[in-house]
Design a protein around this nucleic acid. Structure first.
Length: 571
RNA sequence: CGGGAUGUGGCGCAGUCAGGCAGCGCACCUGCUUUGGGAGCAGGGGGUCGGCGGUUCAAAUCCGCCCAUCCCGACCA
């Protein structure tokens, strides 16, 4: 293609409200434009990358035997009501009413629709099945952000497996795991599989593929010693043992005027590891008490995952006061009953502890947790902190910010059951199959690559997904010999299947170099009178700036070599 | 949903405090010169100043309401 005829609106300055590197560069490079918050137009350059990323995903899905199909984006309420998710998805689902008054939803995901198709399956001989699509998903995100990283409308590759039994599900899950490893490697991403919470999807196990980046929204705890890696929503660490402070036979109240925080109580001589942090939450409307060691943060997702509570929020101060007789900052669980009390295992065996007395400006010391508190459930509630020892090997854990690039779930029989899917097994018994679901956001994957592979000058796409593989930069377009040779090479390379871009714009060389670097074309041939007089041109690699002089006769072969090498790396 | 901020030409911004002809840089168009890392000179086009209402002789500017966008948090496959 000739650059002069293309729509590549590059900008010298990024929009002021773009923060993330990928957001700034994709807008500046003319890949995307925002229509409204969370909705982006893919311009020609962006769409080329998007299609190439999708193609990588397609190839790897096909390679594990998955079959591509396409499901509707607009769903009747009934299928979501059947699974119970019409209610549970809440405000995140876009809903509308058609002219007949029927309730509809824009699909956030397609488990229900897939399960409906599963009704066509009647025999164990039909299993296993793996189906996938690349389809637009709609989610009314509370806060779209960071360009393509979190949006409300996006293309997602979602696949679904249907198996007769758990062993089959394990097999389908592992196939996807391997496919995902290959996909991310081909995209040039270092994606780490980590144990994850299954959240609203439910199911028995899930693994997220995480790419380290400050633009991410998840924290992952990783162990350099044994390779343990888990989302902090699930991660655990060894508890560093604390020696109990000496204490008497019963808790003793003492005055703590004005003290409302862990930090303030620490200054008063009670280190956080000797405090019990008491949190009061409403769990589906009921008040519950959550106890943690003073220096341990509460991780809500752990509680939600363990209890199945749908709606968890901090109780408001009035309700707490009515229930316990004190305000947050002076709360404790000693002698409290009538509320379910959950305690983190780090409090087991602890004594000599300090906690609120449920009377403003009074705390208790000398508390023995198991003696003085009627704990109903011991439950891992705490968030892992950077540097804590790994539970498996004792090495310090690192907590790193990551982008969730992919997520695979073992769903179990929930959806098949809800939609009434069943097949006959070899003995003629009706069996409910078990399902898995597996997702990769195409635009997010693209933005993640941009986030990780760029420098001050712009993007650095891997050859496999670059919008063009090579750009022929003609330094002086009114130099006939330059244009002649560039045109010939363009045609030869295009005929050889290379995505080649000929920069024939009548612009200054500096502008052309800067644009080529900004949009991240991995290979550049610089064609100018200076070199041509000597029978050579410059050949530059975007990634490292490495430049070599190549003779005119060898140029096409050199480019083909480099392109095929580059494609090889991404496969 | 809570907190913070911002809306002036395609992009970046000044002007708002203290009301008085809507400006600057980049980009764009024309001409001349220039031509291997974001050229120079000259001329030119383009803006409901987010929207609605109010105050005023006069509103980008003051007041009220609304909308949009971004950031932090909550939330979130």
């Amino acid at each position: 293609m000739r650059w002069s005829t293309l729509f590549i609106p590059t900008l010298r300055d990024a929009p002021a409200d773009a923060e993330a590197a990928s957001h700034r560069l994709l807008v500046r490079g003319g890949f995307i434009r925002q229509l409204q918050s969370g909705h982006y137009s893919m311009l020609p350059l962006g769409w080329r990358v998007h299609r190439k990323v999708a193609e990588v995903i397609r190839q790897e899905m096909d390679a594990i035997g998955a079959q591509e199909l396409l499901l509707p984006a607009l769903h009747p309420a009934s299928v979501w009501q059947a699974s119970g998710r019409w209610e549970s998805m809440g405000d995140e689902m876009f809903r509308l009413v058609d002219r007949k008054g029927a309730d509809l939803a824009l699909g956030m995901t397609h488990e229900e629709v897939i399960a409906l198709l599963g009704l066509e399956l009647s025999s164990y001989r039909d299993l296993p099945q793996m189906w996938y699509q690349i389809q637009t998903k709609f989610r009314d995100e509370p806060r779209p952000k960071s360009g393509l990283l979190r949006v409300r409308e996006f293309a997602m590759k979602d696949s679904y497996s249907i198996d007769l039994d758990d062993a089959g599900l394990d097999r389908s899950f592992d196939l996807h795991h391997h496919a995902y490893v290959r996909i991310f490697a081909r995209l040039g991403l270092d994606a780490v599989p980590v144990e994850a919470s299954s959240g609203a999807m439910g199911g028995s196990a899930s693994i997220e593929f995480m790419v380290e980046s400050p633009a991410g929204e998840d924290d992952v705890a990783r162990c350099g010693g044994c390779g343990y890696a888990a989302n902090v929503e699930r991660a655990s660490a060894a508890t560093e043992s604390v020696e109990n402070r000496p204490a008497g036979d019963a808790p003793e109240p003492f005055p703590t005027p004005g003290i409302r925080t862990i930090a303030a109580l620490t200054e008063a001589g009670h280190p956080p590891e000797h405090q019990i942090k008491t949190l009061v939450y409403e769990a589906d409307g009921d008040l519950v008490l959550l106890l943690l060691r003073g220096d341990h943060p509460f991780l809500e997702q752990k509680f939600v995952d363990a209890t199945g509570v749908a709606d968890l929020r901090p109780a408001d101060a009035d309700r707490i006061r009515d229930a316990l007789g004190a305000s947050p900052g002076s709360l404790g669980a000693v002698g409290v009953d009538g509320f379910t009390i959950y305690a983190d295992p780090a409090l087991r065996g602890r004594s000599g502890m300090t906690t609120g007395a449920n009377e403003d400006d009074v705390h208790l010391h000398g508390v023995d947790v198991e003696r003085d508190v009627a704990v109903d459930h011991w439950l891992d509630l705490r968030g892992v902190l950077d540097g804590e020892p790994c539970a498996a090997c004792g090495e310090p854990l690192q907590v790193v910010r990551c982008i969730e690039a992919g997520h695979i779930f073992k769903l179990g029989r929930r959806y098949a059951e809800a939609l009434g899917v069943s097949v006959l097994d070899a003995e003629g018994n009706a069996r409910t199959p078990t399902m898995g679901s597996y997702g990769i956001g195409v635009g997010r994957a693209m933005a993640t690559v941009a986030e990780v592979l760029h420098d001050d000058a712009g993007l650095c796409w891997p050859v496999g997904i670059a919008p063009y593989e090579v750009v022929l930069t003609v330094v002086k377009v009114d130099h006939e010999a330059s244009m002649e040779v560039a045109g010939r090479w363009h045609d030869e390379l295009a005929a050889a299947g290379v995505d080649v871009l000929l920069d024939d714009r009548d612009a200054r060389p500096g502008v052309k170099f800067a644009d080529a670097e900004l949009i991240g074309i991995p290979l550049r041939v610089t064609i100018g009178p200076r070199g041509l007089d000597l029978g050579s041109v410059e050949f530059t690699r975007r990634a490292d700036g490495d430049t070599t002089e190549v003779t005119v006769d060898d140029l096409v072969a050199s480019v083909l070599d480099a392109v095929f090498d580059g494609r090889q790396l991404s496969r």
